[in-house]
Design a protein around this nucleic acid. Structure first.
Lengths: 239, 239
DNA sequence: CGCTCAGTTGAACCCGCTCAAGCTGCGTGG
DNA sequence: CCACGCAGCTTGAGCGGGTTCAACTGAGCG
């Protein structure tokens, strides 16, 4: 039953019959928990299992030679975290737990087999990796061509939508379990600058913060400020 | 026979039997030519064919609200240019010809069918999109965490390797059909700054330029300067 | 109570941008 | 064959968004 969130997520973008759902549910699973900052997939290894996040957040990272970290993506419950590495001979980046997480490991080969026995599963999983790639592309635009405030607003919008899509909060009121340093590493900025911009956005009334809780008073305004168009998320209903 | 370069490229990373090669070769094809800057796949449309580049370069782009362009990826002959959009309901970015190009369009549905009739084809094509995603990730690190000179050196190394891999030149001596403005749009910089950095790199003896031809005197040095590790390209022999 | 980690703030600096002018190579037409 | 036009390249001067460095605050926790 651990696999249910995956089915829910895949169904968000690709219809899924009963037979396919049963096939997914009958996969053998290995339960695992990771505490914050623990490595889930290590760069350079060849995992034989795919990790399905059940609870908590995770993130992909790479370290540049300068020693600076770049966060490539943030993952939420229901995300299949290392499908990106599924067919690659070895992982080219590391996946870590952002918060304490619970997850389920599925045998990679069995999962791949299902892709060819049930076309809908194959397409749904392929699609899932293509959507990941779409987020990567948006991330390139973010760090390449948007200024600091726009980047932050954009990230908040994206996380709001994604959190709402999995029922973990509302798009304009959610828990953001990231330190300012992590936000910086995600957006190609420094923690100091993130701090100043967040403060300015709060003063200007774009957002409210209580600890790590984010409230967005005027969503359309934030979306405008963040140059945010949810199209690239490829969610069923557009939002 | 137009499909031969595709088979060669897929085989670079995934073994391919005779039956699979025959199946690919027997796909119906539609030949097309695009002159430089022509749109190959337009954002917002749902292409029913996949474009295989035969000759010339292409690039993916997105326009930020500020009007600035971000180039997401550069594609070389043999690349299947819109597999990224194959399963997505609509293209979230535009693909354009960088130079005059010749290409072949393959019916999307027939191609997808082959993926399920021949597992090796399915895995090779999925893998291809995963490698694309790996390049996107490296691109995020580039614009997020590397300074201007490092970015340029990194891009030159990547293109050198990829051009050599398809036999279009040597990694340390190749034609680069990009204006400085395009380099800038690719790397999240301005054309003026690209110009200054290229000049400095030439003065320092890292590269030589004659028109659009690039010669790299000391490849290991450029690779070091560019924080370049070809692992993320996932080529068979590591280089 | 003291340690540690995250967040906050200030001052100085610098990498890359902006604006603006001039240059170069090349295709086109007279 | 030259004149013109134009796109891409080059160069300079000044500016500014974001960084760096450093100090301080505040919350959680043993």
């Amino acid at each position: 039953m651990y696999v249910a969130p995956l089915i829910r997520k895949l169904s968000l973008r690709h219809p899924m019959g009963n037979a396919e759902q049963q096939a997914l549910l009958s996969l053998p699973t290995r339960y695992a928990a990771h505490s914050a900052e623990a490595v889930i997939v290590r760069e350079g290894t060849s995992p034989t299992e795919a990790c399905l996040l059940i609870e908590g957040f995770a993130y992909r990272e790479r370290i540049a030679r300068s020693g600076e970290r770049q966060i490539l993506a943030v993952h939420l419950p229901g995300d299949l975290v290392d499908l990106q590495n599924a067919l690659l001979p070895e992982a080219d980046h590391t996946v870590r737990a952002l918060t304490d997480t619970r997850s389920v490991f599925l045998p990679r080969d069995a999962l791949l087999d299902l892709c060819y026995r049930h076309r809908a599963i194959g397409e749904a999983l392929w699609l899932d990796t293509l959507v990941d790639a779409s987020l990567f592309r948006e991330h390139i635009v973010d760090v390449g061509r948007r200024d600091a405030q726009t980047r932050i607003a954009h990230l908040l919008c994206e996380l709001g939508i994604r959190i709402e899509a999995i029922g973990l909060g509302k798009r304009d009121d959610f828990e953001l379990p990231m330190t300012q340093e992590k936000l910086a590493d995600c957006l190609g900025l420094t923690a100091v600058h993130i701090n100043r911009m967040l403060k300015r956005m709060e003063v200007e009334g774009m957002i409210e913060r209580r600890m790590r809780r984010i409230r967005i008073a005027d969503w359309p305004r934030l979306a405008r400020a963040g140059d945010f168009d949810p199209k690239y998320l490829h969610l069923r209903d557009g939002e």
